[in-house]
Structure formats: structure tokens, C-alpha cells
């Protein structure tokens, strides 16, 4: 009998295929469900409040009469945290990554990298109380007008939180630059610093940028630390010494309170959640594009 005609039934192969497909499908299903529930729950909100009033209004006062649903103060608060934390985390994170990838001895790396990872593993609520009990007093001693709950303290602590992410991803990007480029630069009489700033850093730039964008999206979504350190006062003032409220902090505030289900303020958290989702989605799409470009930089 022809050996090729003896087709064996490979039921296990098929079973594995099906199981793996199910796992992949599950993650898509989860995402779709989240989006659907966000949209579904925020539709009633937009019957009460015009979308433009929501997006462009400058007063956010959903819990006290007269209720106002202008989301801009929350967006401004979030922006303050993102910009403030970036100012803290980007310079330190990049320098840390440069040190790790270019200057640190293997022994030093073995100490610094795990320490950074520990920093990344601390629960965010711990960071929140660290800000409140350690950073805020320092800020108060520098400028006595600082409020107990303030944007600066929250920004600094979020900066510390995203620092390991930036340092680690930048380190990866720098180390991904082929050693042959480094050697080529050195063989042309470059100093270590010249090779770094004029060949290696530019070659790693898209990976470095991508790490910033991922860190931004983490800062946008940060909730616990910001709720604790920055207070709950929606504000358009841009003053880092004053209390603010971010989008996520508002969601926490309402969901921990006793807002009755079905009221506009209840639906408001879904509207804010959806806006937040769109913002992080936008940032992640940008990051994805940058990352794709990054893969093409050196073959």
C-alpha cells in the first residue's frame, strides 16, 4: 500500500490548535467587551450632557448642585501629572540607561538592574503614601504655600514610578545597537562619549522615544498614587503647588462613594473612562508606529 495514502488522524494537533486559538480569542473578546460596556454605560450620560459641553467645559462639578460636566479640568490635571512626571523621569531614566548600557561594569549592572525592577514592583498605593509623607513635607519646607495635596508631589512620585520603565526600555534600545557600530565609531577615533552621542544614541532614538510614549501612557493611567497625593480638586490653574484631580482620580472618587447607579454622575465615570481609554489608545498607537520604525533603523 502506498505510504502516502496512510493519512493518520492527528486529533491532538487539532486540539492544541483549537486551544491556542481560544486563548488568543479570549484577549480580543475581553477588549471588545470593555469597549462595549464603556460605550453602553456612557450613552445615557451624553443624553444629559452635550458632548461638546463635556469636552470643552471648564468646570467639573458632578457631585454638587448645580452640576457641571466640563471635563477639561480633569484633562488639565492629568496633563500636569504627565508633564511633571516626564520632567522627572526622562532625564534621570535616560542617564541611568546610558550609564547601565555604556559605562557600568557587569557587576554594577547586576546590582542596579534588579534594584530598578524592585522599584517597578512596589504597589502604587505605597507610592501614594510615600508622596504624602515624604515628598510633600520636603516641598512644603521649600515653598511654604504648598498645599497638603498638590500636583507637584504627585508628579514627582509618578515620575519615580515610571523611571524604571524608561531606564529599562532605553537600556534595551541602547544595547540593541550592534556592537559593530560602536567599534566602527571607536576605530574612527571617537571617544566613548562621541560614539555614544553621535552614533549609538541616534541609532537607538526611536526605541528611546517609544519608551517615553509607553511611560506617558502609564502616567496617564496612574490612579492610586495620584488620588492620594494630589487630592480631589478639579482645577484649571496649572499651579503645581495646588491640589488637582485627574481623570482616574475622579473615577476612583465616585466609585468609592455612594453615587446611586443610573444617575448622570454615575454615567459620568464611564464617559471619563472612555475618554481616558481613547487617550491611552492614541498614545499606544503612536508608540506602536514608532516601534515599527525602530525595527527598520539598522538591518
Amino acid at each position: 500500500m502506498n505510504i502516502l495514502a496512510q493519512k493518520k488522524s492527528r486529533w491532538l494537533e487539532g486540539g492544541i490548535h483549537g486551544f491556542l486559538f481560544f486563548c488568543a480569542f479570549l484577549s480580543i473578546l475581553t477588549t471588545v467587551t470593555i469597549v462595549v460596556s464603556l460605550v453602553w454605560e456612557s450613552i445615557p450620560f451624553f443624553f444629559e450632557v452635550a458632548p461638546l459641553d463635556f469636552l470643552l467645559g471648564t468646570t467639573w462639578q458632578p457631585l454638587i448642585v448645580p452640576r457641571e460636566y466640563g471635563v477639561l479640568p480633569l484633562v488639565v490635571g492629568t496633563l500636569q501629572i504627565v508633564v511633571g512626571s516626564a520632567l522627572v523621569a526622562i532625564p534621570i531614566g535616560v542617564c541611568c540607561a546610558i550609564y547601565l548600557s555604556e559605562y557600568a561594569s557587569p557587576r554594577m549592572r547586576k546590582i542596579v538592574k534588579p534594584t530598578l525592577e524592585v522599584l517597578a514592583g512596589i504597589p502604587t498605593i505605597v507610592y501614594g503614601y510615600f508622596a504624602l509623607t515624604a515628598i510633600t513635607p520636603v516641598l512644603k519646607s521649600i515653598y511654604s504655600g504648598t498645599e497638603t495635596y498638590n500636583a507637584a508631589s504627585a508628579s514627582i512620585v509618578v515620575g519615580i514610578m515610571i523611571l524604571p520603565m524608561i531606564a529599562s526600555l532605553c537600556d534595551d534600545a541602547l544595547r540593541a545597537v550592534p556592537g559593530s557600530l560602536r567599534q566602527g565609531a571607536m576605530a574612527l577615533g571617537a571617544t566613548r562619549f562621541e560614539a555614544l552621542t553621535r552614533v549609538i544614541f541616534p541609532a537607538a532614538l526611536s526605541g528611546i522615544t517609544a519608551s517615553f510614549v509607553l511611560a506617558f501612557s502609564r502616567a496617564v493611567g496612574e490612579t492610586m498614587a495620584v488620588s492620594i497625593a494630589a487630592g480631589a480638586t478639579p482645577s484649571m490653574s496649572f499651579l503645581p503647588t495646588e491640589s488637582i484631580q485627574t481623570m482616574t482620580a475622579f473615577i476612583v472618587q465616585v466609585s468609592m462613594g455612594d453615587t446611586p447607579r443610573g444617575t448622570p454622575e454615575y454615567h459620568a465615570i464611564f464617559a471619563v473612562g472612555m475618554l481616558l481609554f481613547l487617550i491611552t489608545l492614541g498614545i499606544n498607537m503612536v508608540a506602536h508606529r514608532v516601534l515599527r520604525k525602530y525595527r527598520e533603523v539598522y538591518e
Binding site: L181, A185, M186, A187, L188, G189, A190, R198
Partner: peptide, 28 residues
């Protein structure tokens, strides 16, 4: 290394333009 140059086993041009690859060493 300025006086004794080196060409490597695998071509390792910088991810820059052709012009900048040549001009890079003299410039720095």
C-alpha cells in the same frame, strides 16, 4: 586609532547617509 584605521569583517556603516558616514570621523 586616528593614525591606525580599521576595516571590519562585516561591513558596519552607520545608519546615516553615505555622505555623513564618510564625513563623520573627520568632523568629530
Amino acid at each position: 586609532r586616528l593614525r591606525i584605521g580599521m576595516v571590519f569583517q562585516k561591513p558596519n556603516p552607520f545608519p546615516k547617509t553615505i555622505y555623513k558616514n564618510v564625513a563623520w570621523g573627520p568632523q568629530i
